[in-house]
Design a protein around this nucleic acid. Structure first.
Lengths: 115, 115
DNA sequence: CTGCGTTATATTTAACAAGATATAGCGATA
DNA sequence: TATCGCTATATCTTGTTAAATATAACGCAG
């Protein structure tokens, strides 16, 4: 999350952020890894933190974006729900649109800044 | 800064935010009030916090966005430079473009969320 | 030459966020 | 039924950030 010259799309819900760049990345990582803990490791954050982010998302939307299983052969796991994929897709789509809409202006704006 | 259903435009510079919604509002308030402390009072923040924001902005861009005076009949004051006005204008312009570009999608997205 | 309102900054204090650690439950599998 | 990896917390500690407080400099006005 270093220097970013693009708009950050954040969707707020009662003071907390329901969806943003970090949570979107986490959804991707969960989707890819099949568990919250593996996703957390990949992103270099604590399991606790990742779990809190998931919890916030699930509480902010009409139905859960992430479903979890405990126990079982591999201890359990987590998956992004159909609805979660849809939310993520819409978010990415908006992110791309917003970014493209100011691309050239952003480049010019960057020239105002130190390096 | 409650629930926002619009993209937040943040321009980062070496881990700190060079320009964002809060700093843009501060520039407006300084422009209007002619001093950092009056602007801070209007926005309900401490002088210290406002000063830090100004300092970050001034250090992030090629030249200062805010100029200050100490002493004098009214104790001193601050003004937004020509360059600062330009930066603010460009920022507002990008903000509006980005917002408009995802307006309809945002409305649909909002229906996914609890109320 | 004192008071005023502001910028500017240092220092201390408090609030909050993050991290570390611990523990329990789950259920397939061996 | 013991083991394993993961979810799901609770609790405690640490670290970071923000707020509060204090102080100095500035220069005009009285």
């Amino acid at each position: 999350m270093g220097d970013s010259l693009q708009p950050q799309l954040k969707v707020s819900f009662r003071k907390s952020i329901a969806m943003g760049p970090g949570k979107a990345a986490l959804l991707d990582a969960i989707s890819k890894n099949g568990s919250i803990s593996a996703a957390a490791r990949e992103l270099g954050m604590s399991y606790r933190r990742a779990w809190i982010l998931v919890n916030t998302m699930n509480n902010s939307f009409l139905s859960p974006l992430v479903e979890t299983l405990t126990g079982g052969k591999r201890g359990g796991g987590a998956r992004v729900t159909e609805f979660g994929e849809e939310v993520l897709y819409q978010y990415r789509s908006m992110e791309e649109k917003a970014t493209k809409s100011v691309r050239t202006e952003m480049r010019r704006f960057a020239e105002y800044m130190r390096d």
